[in-house]
Structure formats: structure tokens, C-alpha cells
Simulated scan of single mutants.
Amino acid sequence: MKKLISILIIALSLTLTGNAQDHMMNDTKATVVTLEQTKGKFTKEKLTLSEGDYVFNIKNNNVGHDVGFVLVKKGEDVSNPDNHIKSAYVTKAVKNNSSEKTKVTTLSKGEYIYFCPLNPTPQYNLTVK
């Protein structure tokens, strides 16, 4: 009986911790930017944003395979993963006809490049003013 109570207490605390983390994520002041991918391209080919915190919601609109999202400061070597803004990676590959979000990404003034290496897409400009 003591084992059962201990297991229930642990399960309850894990559930409460998970709910608190979900709640904290929802309480952030991050703006959600939705970007849709079709075969070989993003439908938004240029973005202008203000400085701040963003979550990118990447939609796979019938590309036929998984897609992703890469964000790099303009002028950096996009082929070098060390230059990628890791918080802007989707949390998992975006399956066909579904969407996934990135973690909160803080953008400061400047120019960035975004693209999908899996689709693959051209490189698009994102300007932060």
C-alpha cells in the first residue's frame, strides 16, 4: 500500500510539474509567426519583425515528406550548423500536412536568413527592426 501511495504521489508531482511548464510556456510574451511550406518553397518569402521573442509555427502543406526550419544571421555560413539559431529549430520534423513549433527565439535588430534544408527551399530574408 505504501508503494502504491508513493507511486501515485510521484505521478501526481510529475503531472503538476508538466502542467506548470506548459503554463509557463503559454505565459511568455512570445509572438507566434506562422510559416507555411509547399513543395520547394515557403509561402511567405520575406518577413519584417520588431525586436522581441518569437515562436515559429511551421506548417507542412502537402510537401510529401518531412520539413524543418533553419534561421541564421545574414552573412553567416548557412551550411555550418554552428551558425544556426538552435532555438529556432522545430522541436521535431514537421510531418506531411501537420505543423510544429520552435522554442521561444529572441531576435535582435538585424538581418536573418530562413530556409528549409529538407524541402529544400530558397533562402529568404527576415529583417528585424
Rank of each mutant, 00 (worst) to 15 (best):
D77T: 07
V55S: 11
V72Q: 02
K73N: 06
V67C: 03
T91N: 09
N125A: 09
K59W: 15
I113N: 06
K39W: 02
F42T: 00
D66W: 06
F115C: 06
K59Y: 13
S108C: 03
D27I: 15
S108M: 12
S98P: 08
K2F: 14
G110M: 07
T15W: 13
I9C: 14
M24C: 05
K73S: 08
K3Q: 01
Q37N: 14
K86A: 14
H23S: 04
L35C: 08
A88R: 00
Q21M: 13
E111K: 14
K3V: 13
L8W: 03
T121H: 05
I10V: 11
S87R: 05
Y89D: 02
V32A: 10
L8I: 12
Y89G: 03
N96W: 11
I10S: 14
G64K: 01
Y54L: 02
V67P: 01
S6T: 14
L14K: 10
V90S: 10
I58H: 00
T121C: 11
T91Q: 04
N60S: 09
Y114Q: 02
L71R: 03
D27K: 09
F69Q: 05
L12E: 08
V94D: 00
I113H: 12
A88Y: 01
K41D: 14
A20E: 10
V32G: 15
V33Y: 05
D53T: 10
P81Q: 13
T121Y: 07
G18R: 03
K103E: 10
G110D: 15
K109C: 11
L8A: 12
V72F: 06
T102V: 10
T31I: 10
I113W: 12
S6C: 04
L71P: 00
K129C: 09
N119F: 01
D22M: 14
N125I: 12
S98E: 03
A11F: 05
S13P: 02
M24K: 11
Q123T: 09
L126Y: 07
K103G: 11
D53G: 09
K103H: 11
E111N: 10
N125R: 04
K109M: 14
K39I: 02
H84L: 14
A11N: 11
V78G: 01
N125D: 15
V90H: 02
K41L: 05
K29M: 06
P122V: 10
D77Y: 05
M24W: 08
D77W: 08
Y114H: 11
G64W: 12
H65G: 15
K73W: 12
V55L: 13
P120C: 03
L126C: 07
G18H: 11
A88W: 00
